[in-house]
Amino acid sequence: MEDETYKVRTFLEGVAQCGAAQAFAMLEPASDLLSQRKAYAFLKAHDTRFGGQWEHGEAWLAQQVAEGAVKPVRRGHHKNSPLCYSKAQLLQALLAEEAIKNDIFKGTNL
């Protein structure tokens, strides 16, 4: 039971973090966007903040873009303009993956 409580609590903390990131993105849209290199650094910092393994790197981000969970935005009009990623979208994709991995919604209709 303790393990289930921990899973739900960390999921709810992640939901609150996503909500705060979304609010910040609405208030300061320019500061929500990360370059591709900074997005990789953001993911690495998120994975290793409590001594964990770095799991979400270039391949994971490419997969999320291919699935449509994260939508990069070009910072210019040319095809070689840098791609930028939203912190809020990155956090949402991480949280969704964690919820599925930890089986948070088992026994529900979600």
Results as ranks from 00 to 15, higher is better:
D3V: 14
E4R: 15
T5S: 03
T5R: 10
Y6P: 00
Y6W: 11
K7Y: 08
V8N: 08
V8L: 09
F11K: 08
L12K: 06
V15P: 06
V15H: 13
A16K: 06
C18Q: 02
C18T: 02
A20V: 14
A20F: 15
Q22F: 08
Q22W: 10
A23V: 06
F24L: 01
F24R: 00
A25G: 12
M26F: 00
E28W: 01
E28N: 05
P29R: 07
A30D: 04
S31K: 15
S31W: 14
L33A: 08
S35P: 02
A39M: 12
A39T: 15
A39W: 14
Y40V: 13
L43E: 10
L43V: 10
A45V: 05
H46L: 00
D47R: 04
T48N: 11
T48I: 04
T48V: 14
R49T: 15
R49W: 07
F50E: 06
G51Y: 05
G51N: 06
G52S: 07
W54D: 04
E55D: 03
E58V: 02
W60A: 01
L61F: 10
Q63A: 14
A66L: 09
A66H: 07
E67S: 13
A69G: 14
V70H: 12
P72F: 05
R74Y: 08
R74A: 12
R75S: 04
P82Q: 09
L83H: 10
L91K: 15
Q92C: 00
Q92H: 04
L94M: 01
L95E: 02
A99W: 04
A99P: 03
I100Q: 08
K101A: 11
K101D: 08
K101F: 03
N102T: 12
I104F: 12
G107N: 15
N109V: 03
